[in-house]
């Protein structure tokens, strides 16, 4: 495991914890797209089915378990405990526009045509677009709470670090996984616009609001 990979995982975990703490402390999930969070829960569920079939390391098993728990707790807080604060009106991204192409593509373009492998591929493709309902919500309302932008920043940073991890692995192990790399690049591109706003506005102490 290289430094980019471990920092990527830490960023990912930090992003999820920031979101949970934000919701828990403010007792509100205002500004958070429940749809994106449901998609992430589906992503982890379909990807980590190998918890039952493969053992890699204690680290791998524990992290997968923690990621799954974070995702499910977040969904529960949004649609359960704090559902009165959930902004259903502005969370209006049509999920079928993501789920249908992603499902189709995972059947067409995968490493091997087996149930677990198709589900893994589905999870990789879905993860690359899962944040779109959240970004759509921000563009619709025209603003985001600063803490929400920190969440998005660490989520984007995770992807950027994973790209560095793949370059590193390609150089040192001659290893690469085309499906993961292409999806990772696509996903990181979605964050570029946000990164720009984050650096030019949020880091200078301003709230993220769109003109």
């Amino acid at each position: 495991m290289n430094i980019f990979r471990i920092l990527g995982d830490v960023s990912h975990l930090l992003a999820m914890i920031i979101l949970l703490v934000k919701i828990w402390r403010s007792k509100s999930c205002a500004g958070i797209s429940g749809k994106s969070q449901v998609l992430f829960a589906i992503v982890f569920t379909s990807r980590y089915l190998d918890l039952f079939t493969n053992f890699f390391s204690i680290y791998n098993t524990v992290m997968k378990f923690v990621f799954l728990m974070c995702a499910y707790i977040t969904v529960y807080l949004i649609y359960g405990k704090f559902r009165k604060t959930f902004d259903n009106e502005n969370d209006s991204f049509r999920l079928e526009f993501l789920l249908i192409p992603v499902t189709g593509l995972s059947f067409l373009e995968n490493q091997s045509f087996t149930p677990l492998e198709i589900l893994w591929t589905f999870s990789i493709y879905l993860e690359s677009v899962a944040i779109l309902p959240q970004l759509f919500m921000i563009s619709k309302t025209g603003e985001a709470e600063t803490i929400t932008t920190h969440y998005l920043f660490f989520l984007g940073l995770y992807h950027a670090l994973y790209l560095a991890n793949w370059i590193w692995r390609y150089q040192t192990e001659n290893y690469y996984d085309q499906i993961a790399v292409v999806s990772g690049v696509v996903q990181t591109i979605f964050y570029c616009d946000f990164f720009y706003l984050y650096v030019t506005k949020v880091l200078k102490g301003k709230k993220l609001s769109l003109p």
């Binding site: 990979r5 995982d9 990912h12 990807r47 190998d50 493969n54 890699f56 791998n60 992290m63 997968k64 990621f67 490493q111 893994w120 994973y162 991890n165 192990e173 001659n174 290893y175 690469y176 996984d177 993961a180």
Partner: peptide, 10 residues
């Protein structure tokens, strides 16, 4: 290129 046998990343 190493043949991929399993997904060891998160």
């Amino acid at each position: 290129i190493v043949a991929k046998t399993a997904h060891d990343e998160l």
